[in-house]
């Protein structure tokens, strides 16, 4: 047993990606989550969009730059990564939002109505203009997290859900517990997000569609078996209750606006979670001796975990071995 023994707290996307990356460096990794399972927190409700260029609309350049390697990381670590790009549309009266989005982002082409129809036939005739980010991708967050747990097991690591675990048995502790770490980090806050899952066999989409609106921008991400994830609200709140009527109404309206056939969809799930965020909404790695924290993933958990996990590996193993 030559590699260091490392405890990763939190089996969300930050913790699982970090655990797998550490195990690849030869570490003996134990992931611990008091939630009782992999993905018991905010990651379970994520969109799973791997969209470095779309995110530039509201995120600093650093987020885009650090996430460029993310697509390749996911493709080489979990099955079913879809690289079909992402589509950004706006209802006719919100076209100014589309112009604004285009000014803030890059790596897209502007599509006209026939081009939209060719790309997403079920949206035919519904939009005159769209932005197409061809290089982006998406994953199903739940499948991806479970695949990472499987992979970790194959690497000799383990995921424990026991109540308590003794830090002293480990050489390093990496805390990836999201909003639960607020008690230790007072600059961390919760950003409530609400989402729904719909099943709608009448519609097929091949890529995430973002629909812009000045107040409630939403995205619809296609999953397997005619399931669509619609999300997500952004509320400055630590409220952990279930989804509100207001949020559900907004999300359902957005789905219906994208395509009226969603009116006949089956509502499979409605949920709420808390994204952890620092004041600048950028995920950070912090070190204090043998304790490392990776937190503040905000809405960039799937997008930025690979790059931030690399930073954790650099601290533990040195940059030359990376």
């Amino acid at each position: 047993m030559t590699g260091p023994r490392i405890l990763v707290r939190g089996a969300g996307v930050a913790g699982m990606v970090t655990a797998v990356a550490l195990a690849e460096h030869g570490a003996h990794v134990t992931v611990h989550d008091i939630g009782g399972r992999v993905g018991a927190g905010a990651s379970w409700f994520a969109g799973g969009m791997l969209a470095p260029w779309c995110e530039a609309e509201s995120a600093p350049d650093e987020v885009t730059q650090d996430s460029l390697t993310s697509l390749n990381w996911w493709e080489s670590h979990v099955p079913d990564v879809v690289r079909a790009g992402s589509l950004v549309v706006a209802p006719p009266r919100d076209t100014p939002e589309l112009n604004r989005f285009g000014r803030r982002t890059s790596h897209f082409e502007i599509l006209n109505a026939p081009q939209i129809d060719a790309l997403e036939p079920d949206l035919a005739g519904r939009f005159d203009k769209a932005l197409f980010f061809a290089e982006e991708g998406h994953v199903d967050p739940r499948k991806a997290l479970l695949a990472l747990a499987q992979r970790l097991k194959q690497q000799g690591g383990q995921v424990l859900t026991v109540q308590a675990i003794n830090d002293d048995e480990f050489d390093w502790v990496v805390d990836c517990t999201g909003v639960a770490a607020r008690t230790m980090q007072n600059d961390l806050r919760g950003m409530r997000g609400e989402m729904i899952l719909l099943r709608c066999p009448e519609i097929s989409l091949h890529r995430p569609v973002r629909m812009l609106h000045p107040r409630i921008p939403v995205y619809i991400v296609p999953r397997a078996d005619s399931v669509f994830m619609v999300g997500a609200t952004m509320v400055e709140s630590d409220d952990t209750r279930g989804i509100t009527v207001r949020a559900m109404t907004e999300l359902l309206n957005a789905a219906y606006t994208l395509h009226p056939a969603f009116a006949e969809a089956e509502l499979l799930e409605a949920n709420a979670g808390l994204r952890p965020a620092y004041p600048d909404n950028v995920p950070r790695v912090k070190q204090n001796g043998k304790s490392i924290s990776l937190n503040g993933m905000y809405r960039h958990g799937f997008l930025l975990s690979p790059a931030r996990a690399q930073e954790v590996c650099d601290i533990i193993f040195g940059t030359d071995r990376a």
Binding site: R182, R189, G190, R192, V235, E236, S237, D238, D239, T240, R241, T244, R246, P279
Partner: peptide, 17 residues
């Protein structure tokens, strides 16, 4: 102040900012 957030003082982190 969104009413639903106020009940549980849930927006406190943002309001403190």
């Amino acid at each position: 102040l969104r009413r639903e957030a106020a009940g549980a003082q849930a927006g406190q982190a943002f309001w403190s900012l």
